[in-house]
């Protein structure tokens, strides 16, 4: 038995799939109800705007979102002048100028969201060795998608007595391994929403997850709306094809 195990293990190692042996633990991620799920679902723009506010005031201190141009926010209801004002609030490096020097200029909507750190190493140094991942695709890059993000953001707390947490790490119910460098960052009333929504941790987690779903898939609404039209068209076409087929083949019998 031991020999067999060794053989399997070495075969697995040889194939470079040793990681497969340590399968991720099966943490149950409860499904939330999202206005953007389902065939006719669309992004809840108010929630996504609140989510953006949280991103701007909380997440963006550590997390980049470098694939997303600022103009993308037009998709959740930002007007052109609002986008220009928002973009102008960021400093973007440009250049070189005629003197051969790089300089800072105010952002424009076509710029991508500036990253909080110049590179990964700088990010690690500032975060106790952990690298805060880029958020551009976060909603598509984790098993469970936005449900996982919600469960993660609401999953911080005191560790069970049998779990030892290393220095500088934090306990999280759903994070693989249950130890994460990120602290429990969402606090009740940690942000003040302009629309008067009460900023509970659950509300914030929901709004951030909605916003991250939008930035990971900015064409989600257009995609579903086109899908409904395409499938309606194909259903009609299928009906016509079937009728034609029946009529034609009836002459054979």
């Amino acid at each position: 038995m031991r020999a067999l195990k060794t053989a399997i293990l070495s075969a697995a190692l040889a194939l470079g799939i040793a990681g497969a042996a340590q399968a991720s633990e099966g943490v149950h991620i409860p499904k939330q109800s999202w206005p953007h799920s389902g065939i006719f679902g669309t992004i809840d723009k108010a929630a996504a705007q609140r989510g953006f506010q949280i991103y701007k005031e909380v997440c963006s201190a550590c997390h980049s979102m470098h694939l997303v141009p600022i103009r993308t926010l037009a998709g959740i209801g930002f007007k052109e002048d609002e986008l220009k004002a928002l973009a102008a609030g960021y400093e973007v490096q440009a250049g070189p100028n005629d003197a051969g020097e790089m300089f800072m200029r105010p952002g424009i909507p076509a710029d991508r969201f500036p990253s909080p750190f110049p590179n990964d190493q700088a990010a690690r140094v500032a975060n106790n060795g952990a690298l805060p991942p880029d958020l551009s695709l976060m909603a598509k890059a984790r098993v469970g998608g936005e449900d996982y993000l919600y469960a993660f953001l609401t999953g911080f707390g005191e560790p069970p007595p049998d779990v030892h947490i290393m220095d500088g790490m934090n306990y999280n119910k759903v994070f693989p391994g249950h130890q994460v460098g990120m602290p429990n960052i969402l606090q009740p009333d940690g942000v003040a929403f302009a629309d008067g929504t009460k900023a509970t941790v659950e509300q914030q987690a929901h709004d951030v997850a909605t916003f991250l779903t939008f930035v990971a898939e900015p064409h989600l609404d257009a995609r579903k709306q086109m899908g409904v039209k395409v499938i309606l068209f194909l259903l009609v076409l299928a009906g016509l094809m079937y009728a034609a087929k029946r009529k034609l083949w009836s002459t054979l019998h």
Binding site: I39, R223, K224, M226, G227, V228, V230, I231, L234, L235, L237, A238, M241, Y242, A244, K245, L248, W249
Partner: peptide, 22 residues
């Protein structure tokens, strides 16, 4: 025409994946 009908049914299933669960 028979294959055509089958193709359209297949495209419907394909479209469900592309547009609703890509």
């Amino acid at each position: 025409v028979k294959d055509g009908f089958a193709v359209v049914i297949f495209l419907i299933i394909y479209a469900v994946f592309v547009f609703f669960m890509p």
